[in-house]
């Protein structure tokens, strides 16, 4: 098993505010599906955004396959480490198909034909092939997120970061996105998922990381974390979340 992502003493603060991340050390193996849970403001999303440099770390570093991500060409990093956003962020001026094609053409220099073949393949996999020509504004939240996942997969990433992929969805659309994500796990893709979906974390993750106040409080397999949390804060958070 190759180590895909290693995070070393990562710190992040915005301006003179108290730090959002206060020294994170984590490593993720190839094919691992890890859910990161924790209360709002605990630094989960910031951690994810530091991995693909949407935020610049204040201290510490992130390694992708042993290489410092800050020293990798940005295009290479972003093709290998993809991201799915809470607000989908589909390109509003493009059809579903072109959303999946644009990155391949621009960043990977693939031909239009190859890009479209790949885009059509993944749109079919997420069940969005019938809507290849639809504009984002014509789609529901769940459909947009499925297109966004297809767009990320088209880049052939090794690692996919999910930043609260279902938090902006109506409850009845959450399942369709979670199904797609559960299926991705079978493909050996390394997935880091910030989520509030406790049932998904429990059932579909290899590993669950609980964060609070900018630190990793607990890290372990879901069976252990959910049934016998070692830390009082984890226990309190889970008691609150699972009750809801």
């Amino acid at each position: 098993m190759e180590e895909m992502i290693r995070i070393e003493r990562l710190e992040k603060r915005f301006g003179n505010n108290p730090p959002v991340l206060r020294g994170i050390d984590l490593a993720f193996q190839q094919g691992e599906a890890a859910c990161i849970i924790g209360p709002s403001g605990s630094g989960k999303s910031t951690l994810l955004r530091c991995i693909n440099l949407l935020e610049r770390p204040s201290a510490g570093r992130v390694l992708y396959r042993g290489q410092d991500v800050a020293l990798l060409p940005p295009q290479v990093l972003h093709a290998r480490v993809g991201m799915v956003f809470q607000q989908f962020n589909l390109f509003e001026n493009m059809s579903a198909l072109n959303n999946c094609v644009a990155g391949q053409r621009k960043a990977l220099g693939r031909s239009r034909h190859d890009s479209e073949q790949k885009a059509l393949y993944y749109l079919e996999q997420v069940g969005m092939l019938p809507y290849r020509d639809a504009r984002p504004r014509q789609l529901s939240g769940g459909q947009k997120q499925r297109v966004a996942i297809a767009r990320a997969l088209c880049m052939d990433p090794d690692v996919l970061l999910f930043d609260e992929p279902t938090s902006a969805l109506d409850p009845e659309m959450v399942d369709e996105v979670l199904r797609v994500m559960a299926d991705l796990r079978q493909r050996g893709l390394t997935m880091l998922i910030v989520t509030h979906e406790m049932a998904f974390a429990r059932d579909a993750a290899d590993r669950v990381i609980f964060m609070d106040e900018g630190l990793v409080v607990e890290d372990g397999p879901p069976g252990q974390l959910f049934t016998a949390p070692q830390n009082a804060r984890t226990a309190a958070f889970l008691a609150r979340s699972l009750r809801g």
Partner: peptide, 10 residues
Amino acid sequence: QKEAATAVGM
């Protein structure tokens, strides 16, 4: 939109 474009390597 810019973040998403960055995230697909543009």
